[in-house]
Design a protein around this nucleic acid. Structure first.
Length: 449
RNA sequence: GGAGAGGUGCCGGAGCGGUUGAACGGUCCUGUCUUGAAAACAGGUGACUCGCAAGAGUCCGUGGGUUCGAAUCCCACCCUCUCCGCCA
């Protein structure tokens, strides 16, 4: 169950197209359909046999009650007949179980089709919806609006990448992180550590106090059922760290534990929408990305993220996605970081999303756009996997909810962009207005040496 | 980690191996009554699968097993609670 058998039967062409657009195998649709037909046949047979057996067993009980001897010939005849049925039933049931597993397996491998207006294609097809802020150049006049500093007046200076700044300021220690855990596990130190804490706290404060979210502080390990629910299994299994001994995974994002909060639940009328926000560290193996973005903290195995998770009624999930994306944008605007919003194409958006916006922030030191947020609507796809339903009215029929989530925001890259944007000519960092109450200073540095 | 108790429907709480999908109570819904409400009374009130329907089937923590038949018996696992130990 993922795309939904009903929809698969009703509009197989649309599902096939959805698979093709996402670069997945459309033949899975036909395989699933065929497996489902077989499954239904078997279930019909099994149900018939069970009905027969149930009736026979019942008549044994009734005969005995009516006075027949339990070891008499009448009962013995019924008994052997029931045994006979049971044997056939056993065979059918084995086949049925296999067929059910097959259907489920195939369904799990069929992607959620993108919404009709999502551009078809790969990276080149992504659409920039809009941009905000000034895309600062790497070379900065000394009297630039952000980096005005007396000592550098009259000259131009080059913005430095965040890893140089961080090392000079001694606020991020990548080498020692590699020593104690491995490469890609940064150590934040002093003002660097405080900056992490400030960002996390500020994000959570805005979401809970201004945006109406309920804060969740979830476990940062998940079991396989939870990983399956949100689609990490089987789609992204090799990106997760596994605790084999206890059959647990380290969370790749708070989305997994938080969305699973309502797994196998029917939400009563009046409970939707549910808006959760959660901070967790996030662990990703980044398998297949070796050698990519090796410098600095652009691609790391552990980073911090504040995540928004929404449960919505189907008819408003589209608007909810826009709203949620706006909440993430608001944070970037108040941090004063230039960014752009991308509507991701079919092959870029992922397996379980129906629509996804990425927020990319401009990092002038490395002169790149960095993804710091990804806001997605999953419609009923995750909800079906997790059996999250709701009732419109008391006693009404249970319907699947729509789930959405988005980063608000992911830290490592935000920190990189922030350091590079707010660096001054002397290597110190101006602290954005909104973070000053949290950091207790308006400036990090300058470096001692 | 050790010892014990227990996991049943929206909730509480029954359940000799055979009309128990599940008594009883509560909740909620619908009627009757009432100017309205409350009370009282009557009826209804789980999810899922297959089926046009009638209906059939599955589900009593999970997975196996015994049996003609299992919520009821056996085994394993998971979870909760109590006591002990340990500990941020």
């Amino acid at each position: 169950m993922s795309v939904g058998l009903q929809r698969l039967r009703d509009e197989p062409d649309a599902i096939r197209k959805g698979a093709i657009d996402k670069g997945e195998d459309p033949a899975l649709v036909d395989a699933a359909l065929a497996a489902d037909t077989r499954r239904r046949e078997l279930q019909g047979e099994a149900d018939g046999l069970r009905a027969e057996r149930n009736a026979t067993s019942k008549s044994i009980g009734e005969s005995i009650k009516a006075g027949a001897r339990p070891d008499g010939p009448e009962v013995a005849a019924l008994r052997s007949r029931s045994t006979e049925i049971g044997k056939r039933l056993g065979d059918i049931e084995r086949e049925l179980t296999a067929a059910e597993a097959q259907v489920e397996d195939l369904l799990l491998r069929i992607p959620n089709p993108a919404e009709p207006d999502v551009p078809v294609g790969g990276e080149e097809a992504n659409v920039t919806v809009h941009t905000w802020g000034e895309q600062l150049p790497r070379s900065q006049p000394a009297e630039g609006e952000v980096g005005a500093d007396a000592s550098a007046r009259g000259a131009t200076w080059e913005r430095r990448p965040h890893w140089e700044l961080a090392e000079a300021l001694d606020i991020i220690d990548l080498r020692r992180g590699a020593k104690i855990a491995g490469s890609g596990f940064p150590v934040y130190k002093g003002a660097g550590a405080a900056l992490q804490r400030a960002l996390i706290t500020w994000f959570l404060d805005v979401h809970t106090r201004e945006n109406g979210f309920t804060e969740i502080w979830p476990p940062i390990v998940i079991n396989s059922a939870s990983a399956r629910g949100t689609g990490q299994i089987p789609d992204k299994e090799d990106q997760m760290y596994v605790v084999t001994r206890d059959d647990l995974y380290l969370v790749p994002t708070a989305e997994v534990p938080v969305t699973n909060l309502h797994r196998d639940e029917i939400l009563e009328p009046g409970t939707l929408p549910i808006h959760y926000v959660a901070y967790t560290p996030c662990f990703r193996r980044e398998a297949g990305a070796a050698g990519k973005d090796t410098r600095g903290i652009l691609r790391v195995h552990q980073f911090d993220k504040v995540e928004m998770v929404l449960f919505e009624r189907p008819e408003v999930s589209g608007a909810a996605l826009d709203w949620m994306t706006g909440r993430a944008e608001d944070l970037l605007q108040r941090l004063g970081l230039a960014y752009r919003v991308l509507l991701m194409s079919t092959r870029e958006m992922g397996f379980v999303q129906s629509r996804k916006y990425d927020l990319e922030v401009w990092a002038p030191g490395v002169e790149r756009w960095l993804e710091v947020s990804s806001c997605s609507n999953f419609r009923d796809y995750q909800a079906r996997r997790m059996a999250i339903r709701y009732r419109v009215e008391k006693g009404g029929k249970a319907e699947l909810v729509h789930t959405l989530n988005g980063s608000g925001l992911a830290l490592a890259r935000t920190v990189a962009a922030l350091l590079e944007t707010y660096q001054l000519a002397d290597g110190s960092i101006l602290v954005p207005e909104v973070l000053r109450p949290y950091l207790g200073t308006d400036r990090i540095g300058p470096p001692a040496g």
